[in-house]
């Protein structure tokens, strides 16, 4: 891996579960009807957007989930063709032309449904492509997933889900840059990574609250 480590921070206390990130991702990457790289899971009841518990003691939280762009990605080791690889900036990428659709990466990935299989020829509700120029076309019989909007990142922009979030719950940047917003926000906030026991060291951090400040009452 190169010198950069691109990471995404998601403040789960700010997330209101509006699914705008999921839609922006879908539009920017020109994803077929059934494919959603970015999802907002409900940490509550059994159905989406429903709380758990009995009124008035209800609990509801949202967990935006997409590829975690692990520093130690098990999908890269599982892929038999080299279609899944890690770019110099840490982004875990897919080369659809090399993918044989064996699903090994899906099996190896510990995170829920962040990779999706194009079962059929891609179909779209719109009769024209959407999104960013240079986004590779989806192919039937291959696996696809979030790329941190690598075409936007290559132009110095941020992924589509960052821009669209109405509550500014998301941050994106290079964690090795100590002047970057992500570095500072991570320093100031309590955070967690998902399924750390799997040794993947994800590049997506979930912010769970401000760190206690010295001399301040909590």
């Amino acid at each position: 891996m190169g010198n950069k480590r691109l990471v995404m921070l998601i403040d789960i206390n700010r997330c209101i579960g509006c699914h705008a990130c999921a839609v922006a991702c879908k539009a920017n990457n020109n994803l077929p009807n059934e494919i959603w790289w970015n999802q907002v899971l409900t940490h509550g009841g059994k159905s989406m957007d429903t709380p758990r518990g009995q009124y008035p003691n209800l609990q509801l939280q949202f967990l935006p989930l997409a590829c975690q762009h692990c520093d130690n990605p098990p999908c890269v080791k599982a892929c038999p063709t080299g279609a899944t690889y890690q770019a110099d900036n840490g982004i875990v990428m897919m080369d659809y032309d090399k993918c044989v659709g064996c699903g090994s990466c899906i099996l190896a990935c510990p995170y829920k449904y962040v990779r999706q299989f194009n079962e059929k020829e891609p179909q779209y509700m719109l009769d024209f492509p959407t999104g960013n120029e240079g986004v590779p076309a989806q192919q039937k019989g291959t696996v696809s997933k979030c790329t941190f909007c690598h075409t936007l990142v290559a132009k110095g922009e941020t992924p589509a889900c960052i821009e669209v979030c109405p509550v500014n719950a998301r941050y994106f940047g290079d964690l090795t840059d100590k002047e970057s917003t992500v570095f500072k926000v991570l320093q100031e906030n309590q955070h967690l990574q998902l399924l750390t026991e799997r040794g993947t060291n994800p590049s997506v951090y979930y912010l769970t609250g401000r760190k206690p400040q010295d001399g301040h009452k909590q």
Partner: peptide, 15 residues
Amino acid sequence: FHLGKPFRAYRAMAN
């Protein structure tokens, strides 16, 4: 039959 792209199976020893 498990492969989405069976005609690319020849690539499967590349890694």
